[in-house]
Amino acid sequence: MQDTVLIVGAGPAGLSAAAQVASAGYKAVLVEKEDVLGGAPIISGYARLVPSGEWAKDAIGRMVKRVEEDGNVTIHKGTKVTQLNGEAGKFTAKLSNGKSVKAGAVVLATGFTHFDSVNKPEWGFGTFPDVVTTTQVEQMVTAGKIACPSDGRTPERVAILLCVGSRDRQIGREWCSKICCTVSANLAMEIKELSPKTQVFIYYMDIRTFGLYEDRFYWKSQEEFRTKFVKARIAEVTAAPDGRLLLKGEDTLVKRPIVIPFDMVVHAVGMDPNMDNPEISKVFGVGLEQHGFIERGEHYTNTCGTTRPGIYSCGAAYGPETIDDSISQGMAAGARAIADLHGMTRKAS
């Protein structure tokens, strides 16, 4: 009987899938291309997570510890899967560290890649040091100090631009990255907590703090932390003569051009398909959907499925996803994989 599930990616979804497989008494082999476990929240140094408010290193750290201490989980860090042979029930994977793994099912928890802001040059990232991304501000919050990278001063005024790398046909990204609105509203509060005198403005097209995030993040940020929301898609970020940044655009609600000075401009970067997806698609023989994320199988009776039997997926590999939902989907994908192993046993006996 085949009792092993191969899990690719050790972010929130993969860690959750591994824990699920192991807790049911099966073996999980966890393959992670980076040298650390935890995925984006750990590698990119997220501060406090939405919506729990727990520090990423604590919350995700617990997930990492859980699989590291589990005898049923084998972990390969700094490793990729280079080849996958066989079929559902009897896969054989070759790893880049020379080892090979026999597995009954595979879970692709390969996540996403942050949008690279240099692809929107008009918004100044890479040109002006004080134009940063939400990821960088997360790191500032983690370090406990909000400062302009150019000279270390505390910014009097910060602008957060939403939909950077999302909802933009010009750069072939026609999806909403789902969580940036909530993350930005939350970041504005964290900036205020660290630097109460800083004014934070959020420039938006729509605010999509869905479900219970509406009042807990959007309203709270506006009403208790005085974040100002301005409906404008910024045309251009340039430098003012005094070294500050100038935000140019149109204030949609009052039909007036704006040219406003800011000390720091933050790009709320979206979620791209994992940059390795073409390779993943080839190695695992799974299809990608039109945007480049992992293509979902029929969802109603083949939940967590891909285009190939025996290979499952979950979390941000499928498209922009929240951490909490990625964790739930990881458990679901783990459960699907176990059911496959169990099905093999039932057939054999």
Partner: peptide, 8 residues
């Protein structure tokens, strides 16, 4: 009619 600054 450009808005060139906010009065916070």
């Amino acid at each position: 009619r450009t808005i060139t600054d906010y009065d916070d």
